[in-house]
Design a binder for these strands. Structure first.
Length: 123
DNA sequence: CGATTGATTGTTAAA
DNA sequence: TTTAACAATCAATCG
């Protein structure tokens, strides 16, 4: 890997066209019904803890969106040692996710003729 | 009554 | 290498 300084921010879609940024029609973006989902990132784990503290310090805040902003700014101010805690958690999750992907590939190789989970039980 | 949006960064898969 | 988009969360809002 060569350190390309030209790598600006990853947040710069050159071909950002009429396509929407990201708008899932349903609760979850069904990009792949069978593929393993992406595990939450370290940032999200940090959010779980930060959320509680933030609500205590900011009981006036109603939504999580505001917390996200505050989290982002705080996240940047955090040191690696502080963030590494959450990175460690995410790392384990990624390991599990990687294994899930392997199994997914295995099944795919074995035969993508997996049966649909049409067994809907009505409570 | 329910689907959808909005904001954050990180991670991953595909081109 | 780089781009695109999804991962959680939850209140508020539109239909």
């Amino acid at each position: 890997m060569k350190p390309t300084e030209k790598t600006k921010k990853q947040r710069r879609p050159t071909s950002a066209n009429d396509k929407p940024k990201t708008t899932p029609k349903k609760k979850a973006a069904k990009v792949d019904a069978k593929k393993p989902k992406k595990p939450p990132t370290a940032f999200f784990y940090f959010l779980e803890d930060f959320r509680k503290e933030f609500q205590e310090q900011n009981p006036d805040v109603k939504s999580m969106r505001d917390i996200g902003k505050a989290c982002g700014e705080k996240w940047k101010t955090m040191t690696y040692e502080e963030k590494v805690q959450y990175y460690d958690i995410a790392t384990e999750k990624r390991a599990e996710f990687d294994r899930a992907t392997t199994e997914y590939n295995r099944r795919k190789e074995s035969g993508e003729d997996h049966q649909s989970e049409d067994s809907e039980f009505d409570d």
